Amino acid sequence: MRQHTMQFANFILRFGEKKFLLDYLDTVVIPAITSKKIVRRYGRKTKFKLVDTNIVRLESGDKPVFGVYGRLVKDTLLVRTQLLIEGDTLVKDESSMRSSPSSFFLLVINNHRLVYFPETPHAPDLKAFKATIQYFLDEEHRRYIRKLISTPIGAPFPRSVSEAYFENPAPTLEVVPLGGGKDLVEFLRQYKVLKKISLRVVRPNPELDGAEILGELVEYTKKLEADSSTLISESKGGLSVDAAIETAKDAIETGSVFVTTNGTDKLGNQLQGNNEKFIITRNLAAIPPDDSGTAAKMYDALKKLGDEQIVKVPSISLSKVNADFLEAQSLSE
């Protein structure tokens, strides 16, 4: 039985300086992710599309937890120009065929955590997911702005384009892979000389409780209204690997820091690391026959990582308005 490998990330979505995912949940975010019309094109032969998207209630009770799941499909045209035949003869042979590899995702709306796994070989990765969702959000946000402009607000004149954008800034998305645990330690232990470690802090989601060593940098980022801030430590003679492990663990745990490392391994080869090299993975076997069941198993895996204190999984209550909206959407599917 084939196993699938889940990855985990933090989905940081901001609208300007003071608004976040939940502020535009019903007007931009969910309409963008569940849209059947938006298509992101890449070159002349490739397009990305979200399919099979649905809202799911992951936990019930006084503090319900909701998620949105679906597939990111890369629909492309594979082209060949030559072929190796018997006798090791290379001949010209032009042919093409469509291919549509896919990945499955679950975005937990309450805490903005993302669980993601490739379903097929050559499936779109997290970078493709981020680029596609950003495009979909931009398209849906423009539609929302057009709607606001065409709707009077109690006066004989509709609001202007500049007013609409000022009150409702464009979305900016960061998808930060969550790393740590033994994968992080094993990777950093490969360094004989760790010459450089860089921490890039992006503007966090409101629930972030940053590590103490990053507290001031996070606050500076907020005060300066910067999209990101970077802390770089380097030494030609080599930084302490033990200290780097602790620093990287604390940084990555926040879900809002991109960590990069540079140096040489024990054989003198160049070795570079980043969140993708440290990303936490878990196997997903025996996939349920229905997608909602798959989403539930992915959520259970995320909660287990939180219970084991490998990653932070904040417990966040939704407003009644957002909870009612998501409940209605989940019932309507």
Score class of each variant (00 low, 15 high):
1 M>T: 12
6 M>R: 09
10 N>A: 09
12 I>M: 11
13 L>N: 00
20 F>T: 10
26 D>K: 08
35 S>M: 04
39 V>Y: 09
45 K>F: 14
51 V>C: 04
52 D>E: 13
53 T>C: 08
56 V>M: 01
56 V>N: 02
56 V>W: 03
60 S>N: 10
61 G>H: 08
62 D>R: 15
69 Y>F: 13
72 L>D: 02
76 T>D: 08
78 L>P: 02
80 R>I: 10
83 L>C: 10
83 L>Y: 14
85 I>T: 10
91 V>T: 08
93 D>E: 13
94 E>G: 09
95 S>T: 07
99 S>I: 06
99 S>W: 13
125 D>I: 00
126 L>H: 00
127 K>Y: 13
127 K>P: 05
129 F>N: 00
134 Q>I: 06
135 Y>H: 15
135 Y>A: 09
142 R>Q: 12
144 Y>M: 05
159 R>V: 14
170 A>F: 12
178 L>T: 00
181 G>V: 07
186 E>V: 03
187 F>W: 07
198 S>G: 01
207 E>D: 15
209 D>H: 14
210 G>P: 09
212 E>M: 12
216 E>A: 12
217 L>T: 08
222 K>H: 11
225 E>I: 05
229 S>M: 13
231 L>W: 11
233 S>P: 05
233 S>L: 15
234 E>R: 12
236 K>M: 11
238 G>S: 01
243 A>E: 12
245 I>D: 05
249 K>G: 06
250 D>L: 07
252 I>V: 09
255 G>K: 02
256 S>I: 03
264 T>P: 06
264 T>H: 12
274 N>R: 04
274 N>S: 13
276 E>D: 14
276 E>A: 10
286 A>I: 09
296 A>V: 07
296 A>L: 11
302 L>S: 00
305 L>Y: 01
306 G>A: 04
310 I>W: 08
310 I>C: 02
330 S>N: 11
331 L>T: 10
332 S>V: 10
